[in-house]
C-alpha cells in the first residue's frame, strides 16, 4: 500500500481559537499503481485537505498517514529523522492554479527546476523536461518559450510537466481542468489517462465535474463534512438514491439515458459510460 490513512482527523484553528474539523476519522488505502481515482464532494467538504495529506503537506491532528512506509503523525513530525523530500518526490501534488507558480524564464527551466532541486543533474533534468513536455501534449518548440506568454491550458500543461519531471509514482491533481474550455479540458483529461495507462501511475483527481467521474474514474471517493462517505466505483455511486443529498449531480450521460428510458418506455442494455457507448445503444434500440 503506497498511501494509508489511519483514522485521520485534521482540525483548522480560527482566529478566535475556535476549532474547525476539516477531516474526521478518515481511513483509506491508495495503491502505488493502477488506480485512477476521482475525489469529489461539495466545496468545503475536505477534499483539498485530504489531498494535502497525501504528500505530507499537512500533518494529521488525529491518527496517522503512512506514505511509502513513512509514518506521518503529530509525533513523527517532531522527529528530526523524518525526511519529507522523498515523500514529495514520490507523490506529486498539483495545486488548483498551478500556473500561478510558474516563474522561470523558459518552459524548459521551469520543468527542470523540480528535478534539479531533488539532486538530478542538469543534463538529465533537461532530458526529462523535453520528455514530459511531450507527454502533456506540447512539442519541443515550447522549451525555449516564456511560460508567461502561454494560454491558460498551456500553462497548466507546463506546470503538470514540472511535477511529472520529478517522476512521482502517484500524481494528485486539485481541480486541474477548472477554467478550461471544453476542448482544453478533454485534451488534458486524455493526458492524465495516458499518464495512468502508459506510465502505469496512480492518478488522483479532485473534480466537481460528474462527467469526468463517470467517464474516467475506476474508483471514486466522496467527501462530506470532513468524512469519507463513499469509496467505490462510479456506477454504484450514481445508482444510490442519496447521491443528491451529497450535493452531487448525476452525470449528463446517465441523466439523458434515464430520461430516454422513461419517456419511451425502453430499457437500454449494459453500461453507457461514454457518449459513443450511449449513441450506439440508442441506435440499437431504434432498430
Amino acid at each position: 500500500m503506497a498511501i494509508k490513512f489511519e483514522r485521520v482527523g485534521y482540525e483548522y484553528k480560527d482566529i478566535d481559537g475556535k476549532g474547525y474539523l476539516a477531516l474526521a476519522d478518515v481511513t483509506l488505502n491508495i495503491n502505488k499503481t493502477g488506480e485512477f481515482i476521482t475525489l469529489i464532494g461539495e466545496t468545503g467538504s475536505g477534499k483539498s485537505t485530504l489531498a494535502q495529506h497525501m504528500n505530507a503537506l499537512l500533518t494529521p491532528t488525529e491518527g496517522r498517514v503512512h506514505i511509502f512506509g513513512m509514518k506521518i503523525s503529530r509525533e513523527t513530525r517532531k522527529s528530526k529523522n523524518l525526511k519529507l523530500n522523498p515523500i514529495r518526490q514520490k507523490v506529486g501534488l498539483v495545486f488548483q492554479f498551478p500556473e500561478y507558480q510558474l516563474f522561470e524564464e523558459t518552459v524548459e527551466n521551469d520543468i527542470a527546476f523540480g528535478p534539479k532541486n531533488f539532486g538530478v543533474s542538469e543534463a538529465e533534468a533537461k532530458e526529462r523536461a523535453k520528455k514530459m513536455l511531450n507527454i502533456v501534449g506540447l512539442d519541443d518548440s515550447y522549451l525555449s518559450r516564456s511560460p508567461f506568454n502561454l494560454s491558460g491550458g498551456e500553462k497548466k500543461r507546463v506546470s503538470i510537466a514540472g511535477i511529472l519531471a520529478m517522476e512521482p509514482d502517484i500524481l494528485v491533481l486539485d481541480e486541474p481542468t477548472s477554467g478550461l474550455d471544453p476542448l482544453g479540458r478533454n485534451a488534458l483529461l486524455e493526458v492524465f489517462y495516458d499518464i495512468h495507462q502508459k506510465l502505469d501511475k496512480t492518478v488522483v483527481i479532485i473534480t466537481h465535474d460528474m462527467n469526468t467521474v463517470y467517464e474516467y474514474a475506476k474508483r471514486v471517493l466522496v467527501m462530506r463534512e470532513g468524512n469519507l462517505v463513499y469509496d467505490g466505483n462510479p456506477t454504484q455511486l450514481f445508482s444510490r438514491k442519496n447521491v443528491k443529498s451529497w450535493n452531487l449531480d448525476v452525470p449528463d450521460i446517465l441523466k439523458l439515458r434515464r430520461a430516454l428510458e422513461e419517456k419511451f418506455s425502453i430499457t437500454l442494455e449494459g453500461e453507457t459510460r461514454s457518449k459513443a457507448q450511449l449513441m450506439a445503444k440508442i441506435k440499437e434500440a431504434l432498430r
Binding site: 461539495e42 481541480e175 466537481h208 450535493n247 452531487l248 449531480d249
Partner: peptide
C-alpha cells in the same frame, strides 16, 4: 465572469 467554474454542482445551481 466564469463565476460558477469553480463551484460544486449544488453551488453552480
Amino acid at each position: 465572469d466564469e463565476a460558477t467554474a469553480m463551484l460544486d454542482p449544488e453551488g453552480r445551481e
